[in-house]
Amino acid sequence: MTAAPRGGPLLSLDTLVRLGREQRTPDVDPPRRLSVPDGMTAPLGCDAVAVPARLGPLVTPRLPRLGCVYADEAHWWWLVPADSDYAMDWPAPAQYVTGALVPATTRLIHRPDGTVPYTPPIPLYLALCQAMGTTPTWSRPISA
């Protein structure tokens, strides 16, 4: 028989797993993958960029092409090609979401003409920086 560690009984792995599951609370609004509207294709995969809803109307007029835009009460979401975060530091409070996983309450508020759902990521990045008063990372001075 193994002695219990100081301070309490010895717990089995099964007990620890069960206790961990009991502590979890189910998501009230579990995330889902944004769906591309019928008739559209996403050959490059999809990620999403979100900003607080109050900033959405400031960003959209600055874009040369607007792809699919989704919204919930708290955020506006733009579909971008997968891996659009490569070598880009999206400005806070923007959130880059791999796989376009968003709250289930998100709904489509803009559908572009054509079959491609993407907002071009570099113009979106620049529009976000401008709306947020942030300098793009590639324009910032380098310190030694």
Rank of each mutant, 00 (worst) to 15 (best):
L34I: 11
P112W: 10
M132C: 08
A48K: 07
A92F: 10
G133V: 05
Y96Q: 02
S35K: 13
S35E: 15
P112V: 07
S35Q: 14
T60P: 00
C129Q: 06
V80G: 03
D47T: 08
T115W: 10
D27C: 04
T134G: 00
A74H: 15
R18H: 12
D83E: 14
A92L: 12
S84G: 10
P103H: 06
S12D: 13
G114R: 03
V51K: 01
L11V: 13
T15I: 10
G114V: 06
T115D: 10
G67R: 02
G133A: 07
W76K: 01
P43Y: 14
T106V: 15
A104G: 15
R18A: 15
L66A: 03
Y86H: 14
R107K: 11
L124N: 03
A131P: 00
P120M: 02
V102M: 12
S84N: 08
P43L: 11
R65L: 12
L11N: 04
S12G: 14
L58W: 08
P31M: 08
T119K: 04
A71N: 03
D47C: 12
G67D: 04
A94M: 05
A104M: 13
Y86W: 15
A131E: 04
L44V: 10
C129S: 07
V28I: 12
A50K: 04
L108Y: 08
D38P: 11
D89P: 00
T115L: 05
Q95I: 12
P117A: 04
L44K: 14
L126N: 08
E73K: 11
T15R: 13
R111M: 08
T105E: 12
V49E: 03
P117T: 02
A42M: 11
P91I: 05
Q95T: 13
T134M: 07
L108V: 09
T115I: 05
S12I: 09
H110G: 01
Q95K: 09
L13D: 15
T137Y: 05
A50Y: 06
A82S: 14
R33C: 07
L55S: 07
V17F: 13
L66Y: 00
I122C: 00
A100V: 07
R65Y: 12
C129P: 01
P31L: 08
L19M: 11
W90N: 03
G67S: 02
A87V: 14
G67K: 01
